[in-house]
Design a protein around this nucleic acid. Structure first.
Lengths: 344, 344
DNA sequence: GCCGGTTACGTCAACGTTGACGTAGGAGGA
DNA sequence: TCCTCCTACGTCAACGTTGACGTAACCGGC
């Protein structure tokens, strides 16, 4: 019943003693290397089983020449965000396939926290890193990469060269969303975005501008609200936009929490069927709302898979030129983005 | 620009040579231990900076007497599930606070996968484990615990003794939900549950039975549907229930994906305002639907915090008797659970 | 001036494992 | 028969770090 807490963990030496062979032979058996006769193999296996021996990977990777820890680090913004956790899951699945485990952390888009976690991962000698870079400078990331750690950035590209990266068609899909709204006759399309330091926000804003231009619409600066980090700020901003003398007839919300905030305000005012809305990033149940929410959907599993593929290729020694993979997002029409401007 | 991929990582020996001290002194400086003069400390720091030295935690924890890896393992069912990822995040926050990183994995409620991941974590000598046990037997878990690894189970209790555990008021809150429905006059309340091998499903079913009994209602066996793993199975089951000669007037869906499946069918049939629905587990946007979905909400951050507290206490040598912490869930009334039975 | 104590270092071995290399014995060929 | 090659082991040291222990220098007190 009680755990034998104080007993020392059995080591190869213990197994070797019991099986009456050398530790090296135990090593060979455990790792399935040739050079051990069938009878000895069986004896060693039995001894290991009897003692409850478990190989010590930390000792092994210390001594090994390839120095692999069979562990990668994943450093995202917030592991409880559905986008991040779906991405983590996709990376994890691919890692498992390679016998690799994942050390996961949330940087909260904070430099010093990201730096701290990076050092922590580095101290554990992870074989590679999949990182969603915090906004602003990326000194700590670059430094880590320059030390030779294979690295892939996801969602946001590096500001330094020589590193693989996987992103979505932020600009193109945003442009498409705006053109969709314009094609229904909307001329006053608002932009609500997350922090401007984030590359994705900038790209989506650029796409918005391109869409307006392509539709022959002029930008109304007062319809642009940025730095809306979190649903609460988005709510306030949406309310202010709707209170304008000439309010927007359509909203393009460039991040999922922003979309949720805007939706709340539209519903609270009973405008959900009168003001058009397209959001960037899908979210669960977007189709069950009234109206269904039209969104730009990123292919998260594919993003994750691609990132994992790249990191494992680099870990396996691939030295081909760095890749910037762009995964296409799709406009999913569910109703809210198909509302025509109401005659006022 | 190019990474100095081939160069060996600097070690304490390199730092020692540059600073003209012994490796032991470097060790003292790096770990902030006394026994080094201020001048030497500065010299060592400078040397470490110059060489880009990073301590090697794997070597350190191998040699150290406490053998800590400053890493814990988290083994949940599916890290992309909102419940699991919120839990992970809560554990991670507490771990960060202790300078500990988290190795995360998804067991997919599959024994052999769980076993495999467990071995993998064990090989890395994690200091402790936070586990959402796969349904059915828990041999691998018990074995791991018997080897002395501190362990806390979350969401589901162990089938073996001597292990801490954190769960929700599954039974009590389910009973409360059923009583709420009964108090509105519902007499035909259906139960839709996840896999019966899961302890939570069993508890919620027991709560359902208790609620019926307490309300003086008799169980109609054909209104009970279990083993609905995933939204698709839940949809089929819901449709079948509604097709009964005497269909239920209220649904108690005992898991979040099941709730979603049932909701879809109700909406598809235009019954969302006529058939009452209470779900176990909250989910994002449940309040934005028409009607808002009444749910039993678990206090996920608190569950995670509690689990983390317990595991770190055990890691720190707490040998007090095992704890089964129960975190209260709350009924959140949003509309769908407050629909009275329609006269038919 | 001598003794006990403290401070600031250094030396050495060991943590659990594996790479490099050594060796005994048998198989096989000339 | 002898030499070569192969197989099945064993021996030894090292991976990067730290615990245990040693030691030289210095300080204060009598």
């Amino acid at each position: 019943m009680d755990h034998a807490g104080e007993r020392r963990e059995p080591t190869m030496r213990d197994v070797a003693a019991l099986a009456k062979v050398s530790t090296k032979t135990v090593s060979r058996v455990i790792n399935g290397l040739p050079g051990a006769g069938p009878e000895v193999v069986e004896r060693v296996r039995a001894a290991a089983r009897t003692l409850g021996y478990r190989p010590n990977l930390t000792a092994s990777s210390l001594r090994r020449s390839d120095r692999r820890s069979a562990t990668i680090g994943v450093l995202f913004e917030d592991l409880s965000n559905p986008f991040d956790s779906a991405l983590l899951r996709a990376v994890e699945d691919r890692a498992r396939h390679n016998g690799v485990l994942v050390l996961a952390g949330s940087s909260e888009d904070d430099h010093s926290l990201q730096r701290e976690l990076l050092l922590s991962l580095s101290a554990r000698r992870v074989d590679g890193l999949v990182v969603m870079a915090a906004g602003g400078h990326q000194d700590a990331l670059q430094q880590e990469r320059d030390r030779g750690t294979p690295m892939v950035l996801v969602d946001r590209p590096p500001t330094f060269g020589g590193t693989d990266c996987v992103t979505t068609t932020n600009r193109e899909s945003s442009r498409e969303a705006v053109l969709q709204l314009a094609s229904l006759g909307h001329r006053d399309i608002a932009f609500l975005g997350d922090r401007r330091t984030l590359w994705t926000s900038q790209e989506r804003y650029t796409g918005y501008l391109e869409g307006l231009a392509q539709a022959g619409l002029t930008l109304r600066e007062e319809l642009v609200r940025t730095d809306l980090h979190g649903a609460d700020l988005a709510e306030t901003a949406t309310a202010m936009l709707l209170d304008l003398a000439k309010p927007p007839t359509a909203l393009f919300t460039a991040q999922n929490l922003v979309t949720v905030g805007s939706m709340r305000v539209l519903r609270a005012r009973g405008l959900q069927h009168r003001v058009a809305l397209i959001g960037f990033d899908d979210f669960p149940l977007a189709d069950m709302l009234e109206p269904g929410i039209t969104v730009v959907r990123q292919d998260v599993p594919r993003l994750g898979r691609k990132a994992a593929e790249l990191i494992f290729a680099r870990i396996d020694g691939d030295t081909s030129p760095p890749v910037h993979a762009v995964v296409p997002a799709a406009l999913v029409r569910r109703g809210s983005g198909e509302i025509a401007p109401s005659a006022d």
